[in-house]
Simulated scan of single mutants.
Amino acid sequence: MEAIPKRARGEVAWQWSRTADTQRALLDAARAIFVEQGFTEASIAQIVERAGSSVGSLYHHFGGKSELFIALWQEHQIAQQRAANEAVARAKAVGVTDPAELFEAGTRAVLDGCWVRRDLVALFFAGDGPPGFEVMRRQRTSDWIGQNDMLLGLSDSTFDELYVRVLTSMIGECSRFVMLAKSRRQANQIIEASIGYVRRLTADGPWAPSREPVKTSAVENVVTASARRRTRAAG
């Protein structure tokens, strides 16, 4: 293979750097405009003006406004996943093996990221996104549930699936409150409260050896008894 001349290698590196800088400028501009205007009201003209770029460059690098929105979403998800993975890895490195404690470490990292990137979290929760975005969100939630399932070492039973879905949904709701916090101090207080709720729900998790599996008949008995009490009260 013929070696690339030093000058040519330098030119390639410069071109790549310029491309990366252009993409970053467009993403940062899109982030600002989407947050200010909302996805629907934002225009490509506003984005390229804010980025100091051109319409042609935007279409060349991303394909359009929807693709910019999705790129911001993917960046946020990657950052959240990386932060959670690193937090769990740090916990394991100091000897933590309890699934609940590992889950707590990952949750704290995710909630902290919701404060750091609160403008994006608000944007993604607003319900104003490109066609197909809600499908992507639902798929991401499903993937997140699966990851939590593996981290907690749950079985494929109906009750364990319900358990992990409740936990995951609660963290999603907690992230809303973190995003709405008026200061870092308040955000930290909300994160600590959220971790407290996680601890309550994981205090006797499905991985605990002493936990007896709930029988369907027992659940049915509880529901039936409750229905009878309501009937007597109504009568």
Rank of each mutant, 00 (worst) to 15 (best):
A51S: 06
E11D: 09
P206W: 09
F62P: 03
R108C: 03
M136N: 01
V198Y: 00
D112W: 05
F159I: 15
L120Y: 14
E67C: 00
E212M: 12
N85R: 13
G129M: 04
G127T: 13
V219F: 01
T224A: 14
A208M: 11
F69W: 09
F34W: 02
N148R: 07
S183I: 07
W115Y: 15
F133R: 05
S53T: 12
A87R: 02
G196T: 05
C174H: 09
L111D: 01
S157R: 10
R117M: 14
V55M: 13
D143P: 05
R50I: 01
T168G: 05
S217L: 14
F69D: 06
M150E: 11
C114V: 11
E220F: 12
D128R: 04
Q74H: 10
W144K: 12
W207I: 09
A91P: 07
D149V: 03
M179W: 04
A51K: 08
K182D: 14
I78E: 10
R199F: 01
V55K: 12
F103H: 08
T158Q: 10
L167M: 15
L26D: 05
V135P: 02
E36N: 06
A42K: 11
R200A: 07
M136H: 01
A181S: 07
R31E: 11
I44P: 03
D28I: 08
L180G: 00
V166D: 09
M150L: 14
A233W: 14
G205A: 14
G196A: 04
A79D: 01
S155V: 08
V164T: 12
